[in-house]
Design a binder for these strands. Structure first.
Lengths: 120, 120
DNA sequence: CGGGATCCGTCGCGATACTG
DNA sequence: CAGTATCGCGACGGATCCCG
């Protein structure tokens, strides 16, 4: 991979590398959700962070924000086609993780235990 | 994607979502490099961050750190098979970015200009 | 219900200097 | 050459209160 593409990859990582974006995308892939439903689905996110996260995702055209004028207010969030295509790539990352997470944790334990590399 | 897998994805993101890990992995995919060569290849990284980054990647078994006892000291970093398999997934992310970055930047410009969604 | 505004802690990261 | 130690800042993110 040529170095120029690093910058591209950094662009995506800067966008989805934050704490909540990927989770929101994943939860929204099952279908549109309203604000508080999405908040419950994500679990652990605060209103502030959800609000900021969906705005950034909307800004990048990864999801749409639809306001239904009614009382009480009703706002639905849904992935765009682009958002869904990104989710497909993220799914590959999930698959990779499922294949490797156990080994990784083993590695980490051995590394922390031996602190090898220090003398061996 | 079920919610339990969010946690898995968060695990990877926490690992490679930092500023330098993906770049180091990309540069190392072309072949092993010594510390300062890697530092030059990454461009912009400080010694401190490179040192911390490679240690975490080594800890997770994504790369190996080989010390050749000589004067001057000679340390080579190389991706493991697992590191290379991760790089393949990251390459998909790069491909996705190449396909979408222009559109994303368009979206962002329109979003910032109109601040639509506020009234429309 | 769906947010915005504010305050504040943490920690990732950069710059610099020093070491074996 | 290949790191480590120290310092400091700024962004990210959590908690809380307030509003239409």
């Amino acid at each position: 991979m040529p170095a120029e593409r690093d910058l591209l990859l950094r662009d995506v990582m800067d966008r989805i590398g934050d704490k909540w974006s990927v989770t929101v995308i994943c939860r929204l892939d099952d279908g549109p959700l309203r604000f508080n439903a999405l908040k419950r689905a994500v679990d652990g996110i605060t209103q502030r962070m959800l609000s900021a996260t969906v705005r950034r995702l909307e800004r990048d055209g990864l999801l749409t924000r639809t306001v239904h004028p009614s009382v009480p207010p009703r706002v639905e969030y849904a992935l765009t086609d682009r958002g869904r295509s990104l989710h497909r790539v993220l799914a590959e990352l999930v698959a990779w993780t499922e294949d490797n997470l156990d080994d990784i944790q083993q590695c980490r334990k051995r590394f922390d235990a031996g602190e090898y590399g220090a003398h061996a």
